[in-house]
């Protein structure tokens, strides 16, 4: 038993205990707020700053947010950016970096973590979502009433979020469908029949914020943990 050479120290080094972070959400006022606790018993923290965030994406490596005129990170990096909302895809293979598509101008840029580097991009339609893949990126566009990723149709939906690893979230009235890369699907009811799902925000690696006209939801997309919970509203 060479393995006995391993000395598992019974007096183990104590790491730490902390509040679990579910991620960062945008509240109804567009404030970016950290969310902690258990999914169904979450607590919303104070906003990062007193200003409206138009777009947001977070992962284990951090967040990138878009205000009307700038791109910034919680670490304090701020760069000027084209006006309006953006679609942000963080690149897990290059922590802190990602791709940013500016919706109003239709321009794409590589985010290095400290600057935006313009990229040539001709999507051939309105870009709805973006994700980093090995060696580049993929994007979803709407064409002929369906959502397309390259040459593959995901069907019709009013919102889409491309997930790392090949999956996607699709929203239709009152329902969110999780499409796994392996072809499996899971449906989640998020509001009463006819409710409108307005969009998705990547809260963290594990959670996606689902924005509906009736409330905010946190969807756990980790395999085996899939569940959806209502996010706390903000009354102040």
């Amino acid at each position: 038993m060479k393995i006995l050479l391993l000395t598992l120290m019974s007096a183990c080094a104590w790491g730490q205990i902390e509040s679990p972070q579910l991620g960062v959400m945008l509240d109804v006022n567009g404030r970016a707020r950290p969310v902690t606790g258990a999914p169904a018993a979450a607590v919303v923290g104070t906003p990062w700053f007193d200003g409206a965030v138009l777009s947001l994406a977070c992962s284990a490596e951090g967040c990138v947010a878009k205000t009307e005129a700038a791109l910034f990170t919680p670490a304090g990096v701020v760069v000027d950016a084209p006006p309006g909302a953006a679609i942000i895809a963080l690149d897990s293979s290059s922590p802190g970096a990602g791709y940013v598509y500016f919706v109003e101008s239709g321009k794409l840029a590589r985010w290095t973590g400290s600057q935006l580097v313009p990229m040539d991009f001709a999507p051939g339609g309105d870009v709805l979502s973006l994700r980093a893949v090995a060696g580049g990126f993929e994007y979803a566009v709407e064409r002929d009433g369906e959502i397309w990723v390259g040459g593959k149709s995901l069907g019709s939906a009013n919102s889409v979020l491309l997930l790392d690893g090949g999956g996607a979230l699709l929203a239709s009235d009152g329902k969110v469908r999780l499409l796994r890369a392996d072809g499996t699907e899971l449906d989640f009811a998020v509001t009463s029949a006819g409710g409108f799902v307005g969009g998705f925000i990547r809260m963290s690696n594990q959670y996606v914020q689902v924005i509906t006209d009736a409330g905010m939801w946190a969807l756990d997309i980790e395999p085996g943990h899939e569940q959806i919970s209502l996010l706390p509203g903000v009354s102040h």
């Binding site: 060479k2 050479l5 000395t7 120290m9 790491g15 730490q16 205990i17 606790g37 018993a41 607590v43």
Partner: peptide, 22 residues
């Protein structure tokens, strides 16, 4: 001082030897 019992615990075990055997 917490207002709930949610926790995230990280425990580290120092090891002498070939960690990959575990």
């Amino acid at each position: 001082g917490q207002t709930g019992s949610s926790f995230l615990m990280r425990v580290s075990f120092p090891v002498t030897g070939d960690v990959s055997q575990v």
